[in-house]
Amino acid sequence: MKTEGETVAAETAAILEGILKRYRDDDGNIISILQDVQDVFGYIREDAVNWFSKKLDIPASRFFGVVTFYAQFHLRPRGKNIVSVCCGTACHVKGGSKIAEQVKKELHLNSEGETTNDKRFTFEVVRCVGACSIAPVVLVNSKVYGDMTVDSTSKLIKKLKEGAGAKK
């Protein structure tokens, strides 16, 4: 049976109302809404999308199309810390892929986008963060680590695992 989209909890609704208000005040678009949603929840929640879809009379498919188009958006919760290895050109020629291999190894992950079981770390590959002159670089959340080697990468991850330097 066709039913109305599921409803969201009251506190969630309050958050979403806030985002909606910002959107209306600032002639935003659905990308800005989704960026706000991801900021709050860490990923794009289906119920939030349905909520906005109904409020704004924009089909949920449109949201989903945008979410899956842009690399910034995630459909699943990510780890507390995002370890990103830059694979831009400069980093590539200076061995970025080896750094990426090392991060995977240290975090016991198989591929890009995966999150550790304890939800502490997500490993991602990014396409150039514009820090080419200190290539290769690793980002932990928004902090940039430059001139990385396989060794320094191992050390960095070990340090993060021990809890130092990890932040949200």
């Binding site: 590539h92 396409r127 150039c128 514009g130 080419c132």
Partner: peptide
């Protein structure tokens, strides 16, 4: 939207 890898 400087997207070229290797440009900043």
């Amino acid at each position: 939207d400087e997207g070229d890898p290797g440009a900043f």
